[in-house]
Design a binder for these strands. Structure first.
Lengths: 351, 351
DNA sequence: ATGAAAGCGCTAACAC
DNA sequence: GTGTTAGCGCTTTCAT
């Protein structure tokens, strides 16, 4: 980014003072006489001087920049979280750079921003990181200020901010049980972050709590995409007896599942109840609106930046793990099973 | 990002070589014997060495990082464009940092990244920039590698990559005219980037081309938001005679307008035809699917990175202005006016 | 109140 | 092949 950058030396020369004096006049630290200060400022102005942030940082200062690494910026949830972070970072007078890695954090990625960008920021946030164990180990060993968000695939010594997937999922499934459902299916998502596994754990716990068996054919594998939810739904609704409720590991899959149900002529929520996770915008506008769970993104962003800044500033009171309960959002896609039991068998397609 | 950063000096010491040798071994430049190289690499690995990007840059090198400044990362279009940029940047073996400014680029913003700009990245992309004239002037004067995307509020000497709003809008309105519409309304968006103004210019041109008068009550002011589209729609549909078609400066407003129409009991496209701009995902799923226009984002991203890199690398063949025609996407929200002329007056709410 | 020197981590340019 | 010197632009000592 250099054209013919004006340096402090030139400013000092023009003002007829030592470099150090110019530095003091411009940064505002230390004693400088009013007269000299004005002289220096005038010279700087005339020359169009802009301090070189890099040189300043290299003296051991901070960059005042935090970075956030995301895998999929087009995800509504990630996007919303990043926006919340942007707001939050401002309170600390820091800037936030977003890095969209779009890939698994493997050796190549490690080389790229683990090394190349080293020194550019004061701290780093990883949102839903898909990191290899090696990468994680390297990060743990580095001692750099880092916070992981919604990473629960395996234990780590790094600070983590989490939404409570397990209890959220358990509550959701428990509420289905309370509505009389017994054949409750679950659609898994990808395994990367461990979120799907946690939600599945909650599902199984709720079933166990209610003394209900889990037929393994009720547990379908998806990839968090709407399409995978549709396919999973087709498979699930082909079972006999058909599950009366489906809990999907995220909203996209739940909406795909909703389309599968509709294509089979099933009525919602009379024939089948549906629950998702995340509360994406599409959940509200769906017909019927989707019952779902949501993480308190604003609170999580607040905690994330707070924890990170504590580490950057070497402040006490850091927590290794901060977890927030998920909120359940009841909408029209769930209903007591008793609503229309007679219609339950209508137009079921036999596999 | 510094805790107790490992430096080249430590690596060199551990490997028992001079700092310069270590530098060569790691960067891969210059002659180093296979043996020494391995020794150094081993030492670096053991210490968990990561080169300090800042120091490297300070020697006058490049950061291999491009930056993109956006105002609203949650906008679907912006998001899609940034994703395209991310892909494109990779071809040049560069990294892309995203900076979400969320605000107008005024003096304060200028101080923040205008300074960071100084050295942190090799080039900068501004997407739909909302910059003050002063900021623009400063940028023009700086001589830094910069590309503006979809900025057409005023002429500039900076390189610009644009989607053709004027001709796109003109074609869209012309197609409405061809379908027999004469009372065609327009909903403006915010003025920041000049895109709305260009689309309005296209609208007026198409009307003039067809010899149709523009009743100024047909031109409503919105803010690019769905809500503003809804309100504009309510006002437009209260007119007597009612416009038979509405061209909104973006899809969100068109969809808001669609809701306004539906709330009034108007049928689409029989009673009113609707055209948007941008082709957001919601346009396809709307009922009826929205006819709209779209900029070729992938091509634009390609041109943007190419132009920027030419400037970064001081390559010849730079263009100051690259413009791409918009594509029209015909969907169900537009129809010839003749379809159901008899129904046109049904349930119109008089103001 | 001001100046001189040293050094942040790295690499181009020359020695050897 | 490898080491030495110098210096990027700035600020932190320590003098004056």
């Amino acid at each position: 980014m250099k054209k013919q950058a004006v340096t402090l030396v030139q400013v000092a020369a023009k003002a007829g003072v030592a470099v150090m004096t110019a530095s003091r006049a411009i940064s505002g630290d230390g004693y400088v006489s009013e007269e000299t200060r004005n002289k220096v400022l005038a010279a700087a102005d005339a020359l169009g001087y802009a301090p070189n942030a890099l040189a300043r940082v290299m003296k051991g200062g901070r960059t005042n920049v935090l970075g956030v690494v995301v895998n999929d910026l087009s995800s509504v949830v990630v996007n919303a979280f990043v926006s919340a972070l942007t707001e939050e970072v401002r309170k600390y007078e820091m800037d936030l750079f977003i890095y969209n890695s779009s890939v698994q954090l493997d050796e190549q990625a490690q080389r790229r921003h683990g090394q190349l960008l080293h020194g550019l920021w004061d701290g780093l946030i990883y949102v839903l990181p898909r990191m290899t164990d090696e990468y994680l180990a390297a990060l743990e060993a580095s001692g750099s200020p880092v916070v992981l968000v919604n990473f629960c695939r395996r234990p780590t010594t790094l600070p983590v901010v989490l939404g409570d997937n397990f209890n959220g999922a358990r509550d959701a499934v428990a509420s289905l049980v309370a509505q009389g459902h017994a054949r409750i299916a679950f659609i898994r998502g990808s395994h990367w972050t461990g979120q799907s596994a946690e939600r599945e754990r909650g599902y199984r716990q709720a079933m166990a709590d209610a003394g209900l068996p889990v037929d393994e054919r009720w547990v379908a594998q998806g990839t968090f995409s709407e399409k995978s939810g549709l396919e999973a739904g087709q498979a699930l609704f082909a079972l006999d007896p058909r599950p009366t409720a489906v809990f999907a590991a995220n909203d996209e899959m739940a909406l795909g599942c909703m389309n599968a149900a509709r294509a089979l002529g099933l009525r919602l929520p009379e024939d089948v109840s549906l629950v998702g996770f995340d509360d994406v915008p599409g959940a509200v506008t769906a017909q019927p609106p989707l019952t779902t769970l949501r993480h308190p993104l604003a609170l999580m962003a607040q905690a994330t930046v707070q924890e990170l800044m504590r580490r950057v500033l070497h402040e006490p009171g850091t927590r290794q793990r901060v977890e927030f309960p998920a909120e359940m959002v009841m909408r029209g896609s769930t209903a007591p099973i008793a609503t229309a039991p007679a219609a339950a068998k209508r137009r079921t397609r036999k596999a």
